[in-house]
Computed example of a mutant assay.
Amino acid sequence: MNKTSSFSRIATSNIQDEQTSTPASSGANLPLISFIVVNYNYGRFLKQCVDSIFAQTYPRIECIVVDNKSTDDSSQVIANLELSYPGLNVIREPENLGQSAACIDGFHKSRGQYVVLVDADDYYFETFAETHFLVHLTLPNAVGFTSSEMMQVVGDSVVLGNVMTASGTPFRSQCHVVEIDEVSALAKAQEVGLCRPGTLENLPLRGVRREAIEWVWSPTSGNFYRRDALALFIDCAQLRTLRCATDAFFNFAINAFTGSVLIDKPLGAYRIHGDNLFARHAALNNMCHFPIEMDEGSLAAKMALAHVIANAQRFADKCLYIRTFPQSLSILGRKAAQERSKRGLARTLRKFSLSLIKLYWEIKLRSV
């Protein structure tokens, strides 16, 4: 899918600061939304990614590109983008620090009340920011982040309309249906100056239960975080050492304390091009589409658990109900414990099962 034509109307006026933002009818300004694009040797995709951010229908956007010492043509692409978008912020790292460290540096430079961490090879549809914000605005219970569907794109072609594992039967028990009053939602949208018919109409939403320990969200670029939720974990001492799986670190940790909400509508594109760190190919039902060794969810949860324990008093003081703190610790502990089973016992059981299957079919074929 090529979104270039829809980006031709982009104007740098999409960047607005506190002094120039348009007040809503309530007298309050719309919140700033920060997109933090992490780039390493994705110069061939970077322009479309940044163009799609500045093409958002939501009027208060800032974009920060963090370049991890790319060795391709990224520097020239970034220089051209700076000419096209004078408000673009760029961080040029002295070396390739990995995804998490780049996200941390981008977060500290950002100002938005909502933050989106972006892989430079992905891109967005124009209502991404607006839809996520309106969902946060109208949810009956506040959550730490929302996650929207993404189409899977190979080359220039859309091959699948979803990426969220929660679409499959095994993980539906981790979710529950979320209802919003569309009349009330429309009134709230009008109150803050966002009134686009259909944005929230029949929008399918599912809440993720706090106790979920299996991945049900979109990859990095599909997640839309509350800044104060990220702030709970951004200062984790070990986080900079996690070179990938930054989304797993934040999603499992934040969800354990606040829950999250899935938006079952594609609002962006997840590009599969052969050089992805995680996906090897577009998903197939029941087939693993990524290298097992790249699944760092348990390690990420272990880091988050250590961070919470090291800052136990701070987290306990922030929890409204006393039971939330031990429950969240337990959830992260169960996720962290999967590391041993996946890399030890599970591998042994898999090998044993394969041996049994092979033996069965050898006997079966001999009897034919």
Rank of each mutant, 00 (worst) to 15 (best):
Y360R: 09
S173E: 13
A253P: 03
S5W: 15
Q56I: 03
C195F: 08
N311W: 09
L139P: 10
Q327N: 15
F171T: 10
T220M: 15
R323Y: 09
I15M: 10
I292W: 13
T20V: 07
L365H: 04
F278Y: 11
I213Q: 02
G198L: 11
L232K: 09
F54R: 00
A283S: 12
Y114E: 06
E362M: 12
I36M: 02
E130M: 04
I64R: 01
F54E: 07
R243W: 07
A245I: 03
H281W: 08
A231K: 03
F315S: 03
P94K: 03
G274T: 04
T131Y: 06
R196I: 14
Q338N: 12
L242F: 03
A28P: 06
K109M: 08
L194N: 06
V38G: 04
A300E: 10
N39L: 08
E293Q: 12
S218E: 08
S100F: 03
T324P: 02
L349W: 07
V183Q: 15
Q99S: 01
L267A: 06
Y270H: 13
A310W: 05
G193D: 09
I104Y: 02
S5F: 13
A269T: 04
N276C: 09
P23N: 01
E126K: 15
I357S: 04
P219G: 02
F233P: 09
N80A: 01
I64G: 12
E191L: 11
S6Y: 14
L83G: 09
S8Q: 11
A79W: 01
R314M: 09
W361C: 10
L345Y: 11
R350Y: 13
L88G: 07
G259D: 01
T324E: 12
A337W: 01
P204R: 02
A55K: 00
S70N: 00
A253N: 02
T71S: 09
T169A: 06
R271H: 10
R271K: 13
A28C: 12
K109P: 07
W217R: 10
I53Q: 01
I36Y: 03
R347W: 10
T22I: 06
L359A: 15
T138C: 10
N29F: 14
L88P: 02
G259S: 01
C244Y: 05
Q76V: 12
V66A: 12
